[in-house]
Design a binder for these strands. Sequence first.
DNA 1: GTCTATATAACGATAGAC
DNA 2: GTCTATCGTTATATAGAC
Lengths: 187, 187
Amino acid sequence: MSRLRSDPRSAAQTRIIAAALPLFAEHGVNGTSLQMIADAVGVTKAAIYHQFRTKDEIVFAAVEVDLAKLESVLEAAEAEKRPRARELVLTEVINLAVERRRMVSAVQHDPVIVRFLAKYEPFRQLMERLYAVLTGGETGADTRVRAAMVSAAIGGAVMHPLVRDLDDEALRSHLLKLTLQLLDASG
Amino acid sequence: MSRLRSDPRSAAQTRIIAAALPLFAEHGVNGTSLQMIADAVGVTKAAIYHQFRTKDEIVFAAVEVDLAKLESVLEAAEAEKRPRARELVLTEVINLAVERRRMVSAVQHDPVIVRFLAKYEPFRQLMERLYAVLTGGETGADTRVRAAMVSAAIGGAVMHPLVRDLDDEALRSHLLKLTLQLLDASG
DNA sequence: GTCTATATAACGATAGAC
DNA sequence: GTCTATCGTTATATAGAC
C-alpha cells in the first residue's frame, strides 16, 4: 500500500503551507499568485521558490497535510470491526472538517486540487478507502448515493451560510447525528 | 422584490455562455481564459469582447442563466401550501442539478462565482428564498444544519465519483427519497 | 460580427549578490 | 535564507480594418 509522506516539512516550508491554504480556500488555487503567498508569509517570491521549486509543489504539500490526517483516521478505523469502523470514520472526519471549516471546500472542490486527487495514485487510493468504509463494502445504487451525499454534505455544510453562527461543538454533534441517520435509515 | 433579467440574450451571446459554462466547471473561472472560450466558440478573442465588455460579464451572464431557472422553481413553490412547497422545490432543484451534473459544482463552489452570489443583491435574495423554503421558516440549529446538508448534498452528490455510472433517472429518484428523509426524519 | 495586431499588466520562474 | 532584478509567457482588454 502506498503511503503519504511521513517525515515532517522544514519550519520554513510549514509556514508557507500555513499561509497558502487559507488563500487557496478564499481565492482558489488559480486565483492565488505566488506574490500573494509571499506577501502573506512576509517575504519575497524568490524566498518562496527557495523552499518549493514550483507552485504545484506548494499545492501538493498543502493538500498532503490535510490528507495525511485523513489517512491516520482511516488506519484507526480499518482496525475496527464493521459497524464500529464507519461510525469512527464519520466522527473523526466531521471533527477534521469542522475544525478546518474554511479549508475543506477548497480541498474538495478546487479544480486544480481535484486534478491532483485524480492523478496522484496515493491520493486516489485514500479516497477509495474512505468510500469503502462509508459504503461498508456494499455496492448497490442506494448505498452509493447515500455515501456520496454524506461525503458532499459534510464538506459542504461546514461552511454553509446557514450554519455560520453555530459554534464548532454544536455543528459537530448535529452533523454526526444527521449523517449517521442518513446512512442508516432504511429506505 | 428584485428579479433577474428576463429578456433573452442574443444568439451570439447565448453561444458564448453555452461554451463558457462547461469550461468554468472543468477548469474554474480563473483557470478559463478568454482564449479558451474563443477557441470553444470557434472565433477570436476580439469577437468575444464584441459581445461582452469584460470576462466578469460573461461569468455573470452564465450564472444568471442557471439562477433564472432556480427563480422559476421558487416562484412556483412559493405559491403552494407549506409542506407541499418544500417537496416541490426539492424535486425541481434535484431535476435541475442532475440535468446539469457537470455545471452545478462550479456555480456552487467556484470562488469567483461565490463572490458574485454574495455581492449581487438579486442573487443573495434568491439564495435566501431557497433557504427559507428548505427550512420551512424554522430557525433552530437542527433545522438549519439539515437544510445546509441537503443543499450541499444535492450539488455535491450529482458529480460524485461514487455515482458516476448512475443514469439520470436513477440518481434523481434516489436523491429525492434521501433528501426528503434527511429533512423530515425526527432527530 | 469577425478579423489582425498590439498595449499593458501580472504571472511563474530564475540568476546572482549578500 | 532572503534579497533585487529580470526573463519569457500569458492574461485581460483595445484599436482599427474588413
